[in-house]
Every structure is written in C-alpha cells, then in structure tokens.
Amino acid sequence: MFGYITIDKSKLNDNEIGLHQTFLCGICLSTKHIFGNLSRNLVNYDINFLNLLFHSYEQATVSIKQDRCVSSPFVRRSLLNTDRITDQLAVANVILAYTNVLDDCIDGAGIKKQVLLRSLNKPYSKATQLNPQLSLIVNQLYEQLREKENKCDSNIDSVCDCFAQLSQQVAGIIMPKCSEHLYNLCYNVGKWVYLIDALDDLQSDYYHKRFNPLIAHFSNFINRQQFITDNKEQLIFLFYTTLNSIALCYNELNLTQYTCVLNNIIYHSIRDKTESLLNTGDVDKRTQLAGKKG
C-alpha cells in the first residue's frame, strides 16, 4: 500500500473530510495500542480506505471520542474508538509495510530502507504472531511477485495478480463474510495501486533500471510522454477496466454507510488521479506525498 487512495477534498464538505480523518485516527490509535508510537508513521490513506469500506460493509457500530493525540497535542480532535476492524487492519498494515520494505531491501535499497527495516522488526514479529495466516500469504505473494519481476514477466495481468491478491487476502481474512463483490473490489483496488505506482514511476524506474510492469508489457519506452502517447489506447483499457470494475463491484454492494467519502474516492478521486497521470504525463509528487499520512 502506497497511499494513493486519497479523497478529493474539493468535492467534499468539511464534515465529510472530518469523517475521513476520524477513521484514519481510528487506525492510528489501534496501531499505537498494539505496536507503539513509532509504527503510527506506517498508517496511510490506502489502509484507511479499507477501514471505511469494511466498516460500511459490516455496518459496524462505531463510536467517537474527543481527545488529543500526538499530531494534535493541544486541541482535542474527533477520534474513532478502536474496534475489531481497526485493530486487524493495523496488524495487516504493519505486515504489508514490513514486507514491502523487505522487498525493497532485497532489491538493493539504500541504508535508509535498511534502517527502517530493522526498526520494523519488532512490530512485524508481533503482527505475525497476531495474524500468522496473513503474514504467510503476504510473504508468499511477494515471493511470487519477485520471481515475476526478476524474469521481467511481460504478462501484466499476471504480474499485477500478486499485488492485487494482497488487498484481496486482507479482505478475505479480516471480513469473515466477504462477498464476491467485496473480494473483487479489493482485488481491483490492489491492482490499481500497483498500476498507478508503475505509471507514476515510469521515468525513474527506467532511469534506475528497476522493473516496471508497464515498460515490461509495452516494451517501447523512450521517455514518459512518448510512452504514454504511443500506448494511450491500451493504457486506457488497462486502467479503466480496473477502475470500472471497482465501481461496478462497489455499486453491487449497495452500501449505505460512509458513502459520501467512499463515493468520492471511487467515483472521483482515483479516476481523476488516473486521468491526470494519463493526460499530463507529469508526476504530481505533492499529491503522492500528501497521501502518505494525514
């Protein structure tokens, strides 16, 4: 999870933006209670999307308290009281984050990532104890992904499958009554995150000779702008089948709670982000950075 699933604040009122923030605080609190303060930095908007989605799907009763926290030490803010879903997502988030950093380190990441990996050893070990099943599956999926990346697999559906299954498995394990539509929704959300990250990193991946699933698939990279222009039609197919599948599955769930925020993400934010990257070809690093943590 990379923090791409943000809200489009321009299309939400203050109350709705506050609702999104309140849920983020819920995961952050769960992370603090289970793993301590340091791991709170791992909380991102992608995992908060699952938080809102799962609460809505389960129609879980939520309660909110007013309290101070580390990012708002003087003024009380609304915080979601932790519950089963926030706790389990906090655990899943630590497992996903650790495995992602480990994967980067195996690929030869620098000293910063090595230090980060060491600092995550303890939280990861606890997370593995709390959810050994998820930990095992995530490791297996990353291993499969590494194999495909090392082979420079050009079958983009196959490469995306490993990453897409990560969020799908999180849904399957955390939500005991996960329906087919929720399962497919989470799969396509994971696939979109993997693809948008690849689109975002086209130039730097090419420059640093890192595997990029889009370059491997289309194999005609000269520069970012040219690549997008040359493959525009296929890129639209690739991205919009995923985005529309997300919308379709979401509509079929007939959710009734937190739909103001979920609609904003599914109908606007992720589509606009895709459109923007496909049209301008420019990387909006500010948007990406803003998505890491509220």
Partner: peptide
C-alpha cells in the same frame, strides 16, 4: 457529521 466537524475545527 457534527462530531467530525469538530475534528476540523480542532486543526486536523
């Protein structure tokens, strides 16, 4: 929405 609005005033 009311409690979340407070959140915004709280400087999130």
């Amino acid at each position: 929405a009311n409690v979340c609005a407070n959140c915004l005033c709280g400087g999130c």
